[in-house]
Computed example of a mutant assay.
Amino acid sequence: MINTDTLEITPEILSLIAGIDEFKGAWRALGTLAPERLSALRRVATIESIGSSTRIEGSRLSDRDVQRLLANLEIRLFETRDEQEVAGYAEVMETVFESWRDIAVTENHIKQLHRDLLRHSSKDERHRGAYKTSMNSVAAFDETGAQIGIVFETASPFDTPRLMEELLDWFNRTTEEKSLHPLLAIGIFIVVFSEIHPFQDGNGRLSRVLTTLLLLRSGYAYVLFSSLESVIEQSKEGYYLALRQTQGTIRTDQPEWEPWLLFFLKALRQQMVRLRTRVEREKLMMGEMSELAARIIELVQEHGRLSIGDAVKLTGANRNTLKQHFRALVSEGHLKLHGQGRGAWYSRA
């Protein structure tokens, strides 16, 4: 059974949830871009998600490679395993984006998503959409590809059906009863799913697909327009460390949920910040503001504070030109000046 009695809702966890939920509530106002601009944001997020999620598992395809591949999905012939994985991930993501309201969190739906995820992979033909039949413990490898040890033991093939049934029962009951905040329930579902590792292959990719599905079903509609997978890729070491710290305790009397939940919630916050920054830049670009001014706003949003020297390094623009833009942005109420002279810096107003 899933034991959440040891789950402590710390002030940090509460603060992260509050910030994410505030953005969720404000998304309707933030998302008042023209339909074509929202579509563009969604296309970029989709490419980033597919590229990042497959690279986390070892793919070598860049986002540009992914974009080219997606433009030719109708060819249905993919020469390399990387291409096969990207094609499968793209099709499953499209299914989730279009039909998330109809995809209940059931064993059959999860198996169907797994089957579709590996649709183009000839290597995985025998175990598409079926639980594992042999152990698939997560191993560590050296630079030559030789196995140097087991990172953690996953569930046995014998125990997998029972553990998956328990997980699904727990999640659906918790969701129906609203006994736990949705973000916490989703986080726990994902880390336990990953600990079970129910399929022979594709568990990491599927866990990230399921994360998007569960967030959409819980009302976090903005996740269509910003890539959580991209955030995770940029924090890959922290991602695996947090997973392992919690996974190793799940079957004990004292599960430690906090390491994974903190990582998960911080990743969701970063996803939210990226989207807010992009939406604000889009709105600025639609007005009379120049592209350079919009870029300054974006950099201040990303870094929290920015000096003219920082802006020179990050944009390559002329220092005097930047000074004029900063003065204009302050006078228009977009930025706030702190200090003076060489120590001056700017924040959002």
Results as ranks from 00 to 15, higher is better:
residue 24 K to A: 15
residue 221 A to Y: 08
residue 347 S to T: 15
residue 199 F to Q: 08
residue 208 R to Q: 14
residue 1 M to Q: 07
residue 306 L to D: 07
residue 271 Q to H: 07
residue 270 Q to D: 13
residue 182 P to I: 13
residue 210 L to N: 14
residue 340 Q to H: 10
residue 339 G to P: 03
residue 210 L to D: 08
residue 310 D to C: 09
residue 167 L to I: 12
residue 222 Y to R: 04
residue 294 A to W: 03
residue 254 Q to L: 06
residue 237 E to Y: 05
residue 307 S to Q: 14
residue 293 A to C: 01
residue 266 K to Q: 15
residue 281 R to A: 11
residue 180 L to D: 13
residue 128 R to M: 10
residue 229 E to Y: 05
residue 8 E to N: 10
residue 127 H to P: 00
residue 67 Q to T: 10
residue 161 P to N: 04
residue 194 S to V: 07
residue 313 K to Y: 09
residue 12 E to K: 15
residue 130 A to T: 13
residue 167 L to C: 13
residue 200 Q to E: 14
residue 225 F to T: 12
residue 310 D to I: 10
residue 318 N to E: 06
residue 129 G to Y: 07
residue 173 R to M: 09
residue 268 L to Y: 02
residue 27 W to G: 03
residue 193 F to L: 11
residue 73 L to F: 01
residue 128 R to N: 02
residue 219 G to V: 02
residue 298 E to N: 04
residue 305 R to G: 14
residue 316 G to L: 06
residue 104 A to M: 06
residue 126 R to Q: 01
residue 294 A to M: 06
residue 270 Q to A: 13
residue 123 K to P: 00
residue 327 R to T: 06
residue 231 V to A: 02
residue 162 R to V: 13
residue 178 K to I: 04
residue 18 A to L: 10
residue 249 T to W: 01
residue 193 F to Y: 15
residue 290 S to C: 00
residue 55 R to Q: 15
residue 327 R to G: 02
residue 152 F to D: 09
residue 60 R to W: 02
residue 72 N to W: 02
residue 161 P to S: 03
residue 99 S to I: 01
residue 230 S to H: 01
residue 45 A to R: 01
residue 246 T to W: 04
residue 80 T to A: 11
residue 210 L to F: 07
residue 135 M to H: 12
residue 83 E to F: 00
residue 285 M to N: 01
residue 190 I to A: 11
residue 200 Q to K: 03
residue 161 P to D: 14
residue 72 N to Q: 15
residue 343 G to N: 08
residue 349 A to I: 04
residue 92 V to E: 09
residue 255 P to A: 13
residue 149 G to E: 02
residue 101 R to G: 15
residue 283 K to C: 03
residue 180 L to C: 12
residue 282 E to H: 14
residue 62 S to M: 05
residue 325 H to P: 01
residue 68 R to N: 12
residue 185 A to L: 04
residue 55 R to S: 00
residue 177 E to Y: 01
residue 143 E to Y: 00
residue 209 V to D: 05
residue 245 Q to A: 08
residue 196 I to Y: 04
residue 32 T to Q: 15
residue 22 E to D: 12
residue 210 L to W: 02
residue 178 K to Y: 06
residue 174 T to V: 14
residue 249 T to N: 07
residue 1 M to G: 13
residue 240 Y to C: 11
residue 7 L to A: 10
residue 342 R to L: 10
residue 238 G to W: 00
residue 140 A to L: 05
residue 224 L to R: 10
residue 21 D to V: 09
residue 48 E to K: 12
residue 341 G to W: 04
residue 135 M to D: 11
residue 287 G to V: 09
residue 76 R to C: 03
residue 311 A to M: 12
residue 339 G to T: 11
residue 286 M to Y: 13
residue 86 V to T: 09
residue 311 A to N: 12
